[in-house]
Design a protein around this nucleic acid. Structure first.
Lengths: 212, 212
DNA sequence: CGAGCGAATGCCACTCAGTGGCATAAAGGA
DNA sequence: TCCTTTATGCCACTGAGTGGCATTCGCTCG
């Protein structure tokens, strides 16, 4: 029969984690494009065929920490109390809760590597953006199921703003965070970015004196 | 010497346009993944090597209309009068101006095909998102050069909101626009999306009665 | 403690996107 | 007409990603 048996499962998790850690290490030292999948697989002693049974592609393996975070986000979103709070506040609280759930030091280190890589590798950044947008699609479904939301673009736009704030925060964090990078630091940056959203809408622009 | 001579240049533009139109036609009828570059190149009677001298990849050729739009945006951004208007208003006006500049019926048809394709092809959507973000980087440079902007994330966040509004508008337009798709329709949708931004920040969420 | 079952893996051959190098053709200028 | 510049074609190659099939390993039940 098919009872979830720990031993099999643990081996799988170990292989998966080995692929992730080795990928992050190799990509970080020699660049994303400087490492072939064959090299990565040889290092982990796994066939390339197996690699593709765990991950959908080369970018995917390097983005695993972010996947974890967003998966936690979706799970939190199902259980978070939905009083009459502003949607933005609700989503921010959900993300912060998700962040606490995944928050162990090992995750922070991996996540920082992931984001640094995505900043210097356009295909990873593209993959990352698309993943956020795609997750946002699921987020919209959950929100409409749990909340009485109007059927107009505002909900989607709010989601996009959340993602924008997250990316600003994560970008700065990955670039400037100390060693070891800390999750509270990331959370604080994210909170600040969300708080900056209203101000960015009304920001006025004075021309520089030397301009025309 | 190297004087820009029309005849050579026109030939190049014709090849380029043939690649774009053929790509949009083939991709639209048989799907992005259902067409190989070899087929496309054979149809246009061009070597694959030549294809890659015009475009950076398979996604790139299908996104050409969007590139045109954003290039126009950047050009408009250099010349648009910068009084003390809110930044958001300024960027919106710039994009609407860019839209008027590229607005011929042929462009609208191609752009609609592009966006429809990007909605059903994840690699194209990823490419598209990354392109917007990357263009936004250039936008930030121009803005900081021309305007006296604070050195904090708000400017970037405003840019991300503009992109979010644009994507919402373009997505709806591509999916619902009539035949032929009209540029004024797109412009109106975009204006509405930008106008919806403040409301999306303050949108409140009442729980559905059946939810817990 | 085996036998057998299903899941996970390895191996191999294949397609296709994308690149580098070099020879060739087509334009433009003198 | 000659000569330089520039675009193109051709060929071979790398590397990502996939499908099929045999094999091995963990598990369960007799």
């Amino acid at each position: 029969m098919t009872t979830a048996s720990p031993l099999r499962e643990r081996k799988k998790q170990r292989t998966r984690q080995a692929l992730i850690d080795t990928a992050l290490r190799l990509f970080s030292s020699r660049g994303f494009g400087g490492v072939t999948l064959d090299e990565l697989c040889e290092e982990v002693e796994v066939s390339k065929r197996t690699f593709f049974r765990y991950f959908t592609g080369k970018e995917d393996v390097a983005m695993a920490p972010l996947h974890d975070m967003w998966r936690a986000f979706l799970e939190e979103l199902e259980t978070i109390p939905a009083d009459g709070r502003p949607l933005m506040e609700l989503m921010e609280a959900t993300l912060l809760a998700a962040l606490e759930r995944v928050a162990d030091p090992a995750w922070a280190g991996r996540a920082a590597l992931s984001y640094r890589l995505s900043q210097e590798t356009s295909s990873m950044d593209a993959y990352n953006l698309h993943f956020c947008e795609s997750t946002l699609g699921t987020v919209m479904e959950v929100l409409h199921r749990r909340l009485d939301l109007p059927d107009d673009p505002r909900t989607r736009l709010a989601g996009d703003m959340l993602v924008a704030a997250w990316r600003v925060a994560a970008g700065g964090w990955a670039a400037e965070a100390g060693d070891p990078p800390s999750v509270p630091d990331l959370a604080a940056r994210f909170h600040a970015a969300v708080a900056a959203l209203p101000g960015s809408l009304t920001l006025t622009a004075d021309p520089r004196p030397e301009d025309r």
